[in-house]
Design a protein around this nucleic acid. Structure first.
Lengths: 231, 231
DNA sequence: AAGATGCAAGAGCAGTGCTCTCGTTGTGGC
DNA sequence: GCCACAACGAGAGCACTGCTCTTGCATCTT
């Protein structure tokens, strides 16, 4: 209670700093060792005993979870800022995609952490599901914006059981728009992230070496036209 | 030399059997522990010393590589057989996609092993690049087949530096067809595998629960129409 | 001032990948 | 048939891991 009013609140501050420092070093290790970074190694880098780290993170998985959440936030921020700089829906769409790809190329291991195969022990705590959807929500928002501005090509309605499931989701989030927006958003998100991951994981080696950005742009526009965004 | 003619050749045979048995147990462990399976644990399951396993696989990574190659072979076989049962290009296309998804759902950890983020130590030895491309080649073959049968919608030609890079690849593999087939094949492969991975890794939770197959089919047809395959 | 609480360090446990050595056993050449 | 050789299995051992527990110290609360 009264802690909050305490002038210094030193303990809480140094704790926050320490936490950040651990995460920073862990992120550095992530870049070299990938997801199997060693908690003891980051403790060594920090000049502290490995047991001391457990005062800040209950387990190695919890440390990774913190890094995952931060990573989701970073891509989300990058994409959000890129979208904010554009006016037209298609421009936003392209900006979001390229921002995500640029971030992934700059932070490949962090991308692998969040969009690669889940860690074997696995958990995906509740804290991660909300930040995980930010990029997809951005895509959905621009698509919805285009719909409201009548900048979307006419399409035949969805059919099938999955369309009904999506309709219930749509009625909760976008009551004025239909299941199609949801379907196209998800599909486009899958396609875009898939394209980034495969490029990052080397599936493009010996095929496209120079203009990978151009090829990604091609796929991005394909996803856009698939979603009905007029070029 | 004369080994081959030897009647028994016992040693070579038990070696092959032992190798298969190790892989089988390792595959079982893969299903529970994921990519960080313990070599010692599989050795225990086999009732042998962990050091003995090193007579068959030089390292844990080499064991994983063997499993990866087998997994690529298994998806490739499934997709190939599914395609062979169909006549029309679009039917083959859909069959390949669903076969890959079905296999992934049946063997999630193996799918994660081959199409998830690469293991941190990473290597991707040369042995893996050829089997890795089988499914993509199947898609490309059906698309090429459709092109030759004039069952493909007209498209405006590709532009950009990446198109030139793809053109040189095309001239080596498909001299009668252009860069577009390659581009669409790769893009579709990325999209399909991305859709499978994201569904597998739980990104569809709380959105589509029942008719995921239907949603995948939707995406599969979207990829087909993107590639110009007439419905 | 005294007690409660947060924190760092060290020892220790069980487990890991991998190496080395040492007997044993199947194999091909003589 | 014998013998040298290579393949093989087992065990000990090294350096490392995640994690727990105990002990002493600094800090904050009352």
């Amino acid at each position: 209670m009264s802690e909050k009013v305490t002038a210094t609140n030193l303990r809480a501050r140094v704790r926050a700093e320490m936490t950040d420092e651990i995460k920073a070093v862990a992120r550095r290790h992530l870049a070299t060792d990938g997801a199997n970074l060693s908690l003891r190694a980051v403790a060594r880098d920090l000049g502290m005993a490995s047991s001391a780290v457990y005062r800040y993170f209950a387990s190695r998985d919890e440390l990774l979870t913190a890094l995952i959440i931060d990573a989701y936030g970073a891509v989300g921020d990058a994409a959000e800022q890129a979208a904010a700089e554009k006016a037209k829906p298609l421009e936003k769409w392209l900006a979001i995609g390229h921002a995500a790809r640029d971030w992934a190329l700059a932070n490949p291991h962090e991308w692998a952490l969040i969009y690669g195969s889940p860690v074997p022990g696995y958990s995906a705590p509740r804290d991660t599901v909300e930040p995980a959807t930010r990029v997809m929500l951005l895509l959905g928002a621009t698509l919805a914006e285009a719909h409201r501005a009548d900048e979307v090509a006419a399409r035949e309605p969805l059919t099938g059981r999955f369309a009904e499931e999506l309709a219930t989701v749509a009625s909760a989030y976008l009551p004025d728009l239909g299941a199609r927006v949801i379907a196209d958003t998800i599909a486009a998100f899958f396609q875009i992230c898939g394209a980034i991951s495969f490029e990052l994981f080397g599936q493009l080696n010996n095929t496209i070496e120079e203009d990978r950005r151009g090829f990604f742009d091609y796929q991005l526009r394909a996803a856009a036209s698939l979603a009905g965004l007029i070029a």
